[in-house]
Design a protein around this nucleic acid. Structure first.
Lengths: 341, 341
DNA sequence: CTGAAAGCGCTTACAG
DNA sequence: CTGAAAGCGCTTACAG
C-alpha cells in the first residue's frame, strides 16, 4: 500500500493539519517541524494523491482560452474542439471559458488578457499576436502566478510556460521537400500564398520553405509572396493575377488559411490542374481538394491534440505535477489522399 | 453545484446505500425503488464523480500487456513506453504487467492469455497473432467481462473491444503514392521487403501498396515480395541477391521491421543510393537513414500514443465512461527528414 | 505554531 | 429489500 498523510503524520509525530501545511508549503510552521515532516515524507516515499486532494478542496480549474474570431477554418476547428470538451468538462472539474478577439489585433488581445480576473482564472491559453501591450498583459498574469500557454502561434521571450504548436520553420522545410520531390527535375517557378507577412508563423514557414528550395532544388524558383489576408476573395484575386502574369508556375505553397481562394482559382482553369500544391491545415475544403487531386499534400497540426495538450500542461503547472514530453509534442503531420484520418 | 449522491438520495426519498446500489446496478433492489432513483437521477442530471468513487473503492486497475519479445525495434519501443508509464503508475491507481511471448507464435500467445487470472486482471492489451487457440483464449476473457484491446496487429472478428493501431491497407496506399510521386514518370521496378507474409499487417500493407501502384503508376512494376523475417542478416541476404539479379530497381518498400538489413545493403553499394526508399516505423536506424538521405520517407505509428490510447480505452470500458474518438484514432504518420519529431 | 474534528463525493460492511 | 455509520486520502475552519 502507498503511504498516506496519516502515515506521514505518525512517522513525523505531528498532526494531519501540520503535514498538510508542509505539503502545501503554507507559512506558519516552525522550520524544525518542517524538516521533521519532510524527512518523514522522504523516508516513506510519500506521493500525494492529487484526486483525493482535489476532492477535498472542491477544486475547479478555471481555464481561459483566447482565440481569434472570424472565418479562419483552423481557428474554428480549435473552437469546436473546445466546445466538445466543455460538454464533458464537469466530469473533470474543469471550467473552460472561450474569449474571442479580432484576428491580427494585438490591442484587442491585450485587453482580453487584462480583463481576466486573476482571483478567479487558474490558467490561460492564447493564440498570440505580438506587441508590447500583449507582453505587459502577460507579465501581469505571470506575477499572479497564473500558468500561460501559447497556442499555434508563439511569442518567444514572453512570460509563457509553454508553446503548444508546431515548429513552423520545419513545416516550411517539409513543404519545400514535398514540392521539390513531387515536381522532379524540370525547372519552374513556385507561387507562394500567405495570409500576412506580419504573422510570425507565416513568416517562419516561408523562411523554412525558401531555405530548402534554394539549397536543394536549384531548378525551382520562388515568386514573391502573395498576401491574401486569410480571405478567400482576396486570395483568389491576387493568385489569379499572379498566375496569369507569371508563366511557368509548376508549384504552389499555400502558407496560410486562404485555401478556399486557392481552390477556386485552380479548379477554374484546366491548365492549372497540373500545378503541384502543398497547403496547410486539414479542413473540409482542403480534404476535398486532396481527394480530388487538386492538392498534392496537406501539412496539418491536430487541433484536438493541441487543445488537450494545452489543458494538460496548464493543469500540470497548477498541480505541480510532471508531464510526458512525447505526449505534448505537436507533430508536423503530412497528409496525402491515402492517409487521411 | 453539481448534484451528488446525497441530492439523489433525498430527491428519491431513499438512503445513500440504495442510490449506490442502483448506480452500480447491484441486485436486490425492488424495481419500484430502482425506478424512483433513476427518475431522480434523470431529473437532477446527476453524473457520478468517478475519482471519488475510485477513492472510496480503493480501486486499482490491473492491466496486462502481451507483446512479442525479440529484437523487433518497434516492439521494444512499445515496451519502453510501458516501462516509462509504470514508473508513474502508482499516481493513477494503475498497475501494468508486461508479458513477453515469442514473436509469430500463436500457441505461446494463447497460453499467455490462459495464464491470466480473471479474478485479478481488469483489462488486457495484446499484439495479436491469429489462431483458433488465441480466439478461444480471448473468448474466456470475454466471458469474464474483461475488456480486451488489440495493439498494432488486429484480429478482426475476435472478442476484442477495440483495435489500437493503423489501417495497414491505407498505409500501403500511402507508401505507394510516395514512391510513385518521388520516382516520377521514368519506368522501373520496385523491390518489396517484408518480415513474413504470414503476418496480417504485412499482407495488408503489401496489398494496399500493390493496388495503388497498379492503378496509378503504370510505369512501375512490383517484384515478388522478399521475406526477411524481420531479421537484419536474412533481410540483407535476400535483398542483396534480389538487387544483383534484377536490373532496373528504382524503388524499395520496406514493409516490416527489417530496416537494418536494408540499410546495410543500400549503403554498401554506391549504385543503390539513388533507389527511392520508403520504410515503416521510426527507430534510431530509420531516423539516421532518413537524415543521411538513404531513406526518402518513413511511415510511422506512434508507440507512446498507442500505449496511452490502449490504457484509456481499457479504463473507459472498466468505468463505463465515454471516449473521445479523435484522441484514440492512431494516425498513419509520414516523416521526411524535415519533420522528424 | 499546532491539533482535533468535520467534510469532499462516493462505497462498504453490518444490521435489521 | 433498505438504511445508518464508518471510511477512502486529502483539506479546512476553528480552537488553543
Amino acid at each position: 500500500m502507498r503511504p498516506t498523510v496519516h502515515d506521514v503524520a505518525s512517522e513525523a509525530g505531528v498532526s494531519l493539519a501540520t503535514v498538510d501545511r508542509v505539503l502545501n508549503k503554507r507559512a506558519g510552521v516552525r522550520s524544525a517541524t518542517v524538516a521533521r515532516v519532510e524527512a518523514a515524507i522522504a523516508r516513506l516515499g510519500f506521493v500525494r494523491d492529487i484526486s483525493a486532494a482535489n476532492l477535498a478542496k472542491q477544486r475547479v480549474y478555471h481555464l481561459a482560452f483566447i482565440i481569434p474570431e472570424g472565418p479562419n477554418a483552423f481557428m474554428r476547428g480549435l473552437e469546436h474542439e473546445l466546445e466538445q470538451l466543455k460538454l464533458r468538462s464537469a466530469l473533470d472539474r474543469t471550467e473552460i471559458r472561450i474569449l474571442k478577439v479580432p484576428p491580427f489585433d494585438s490591442a484587442a488581445l491585450a485587453s482580453a488578457l487584462e480583463s481576466l480576473d486573476t482571483s478567479v482564472v487558474s490558467g490561460v491559453a492564447l493564440v498570440a499576436t505580438e506587441s508590447a501591450a500583449t507582453r505587459e498583459a502577460l507579465a501581469r498574469l505571470w506575477q499572479a502566478n497564473i500558468p500561460i500557454v501559447t497556442l499555434v502561434s508563439d511569442m518567444p521571450g514572453s512570460r509563457r510556460d509553454h508553446y503548444v504548436g508546431i515548429d513552423n520553420v520545419a513545416a516550411g522545410h517539409t513543404a519545400a521537400r514535398l514540392i521539390g520531390r513531387f515536381v522532379g527535375p524540370r525547372p519552374g517557378r513556385i507561387a507562394l500564398v500567405a495570409g500576412s507577412m506580419l504573422v510570425r508563423d507565416h513568416v517562419e514557414r516561408r523562411m523554412g520553405f525558401d531555405q530548402v528550395i534554394r539549397a536543394e532544388f536549384p531548378n525551382l524558383h520562388c515568386l514573391p509572396v502573395l498576401e491574401g489576408r486569410d480571405d478567400a476573395a482576396i486570395t483568389g484575386k491576387v493568385l489569379a493575377e499572379c498566375l496569369a502574369a507569371a508563366p511557368g508556375v509548376v508549384a504552389l505553397y499555400s502558407i496560410g488559411a486562404g485555401n478556399r481562394g486557392v481552390i477556386e482559382v485552380l479548379s477554374g482553369t484546366p491548365a492549372y490542374r497540373d500545378i503541384v500544391v502543398v497547403a496547410h491545415e486539414l479542413t473540409d475544403h482542403s480534404r476535398k481538394a486532396l481527394r480530388d487531386g487538386l492538392f498534392d499534400a496537406v501539412i496539418n497540426q491536430d487541433a484536438g491534440h493541441e487543445i488537450r495538450s494545452a489543458i494538460r500542461l496548464l493543469k500540470a503547472r497548477i498541480d505541480g505535477t510532471d508531464i510526458i514530453d512525447g505526449q505534448e509534442n505537436i507533430r508536423i503531420e503530412i497528409y496525402l489522399r491515402d492517409n487521411l484520418p
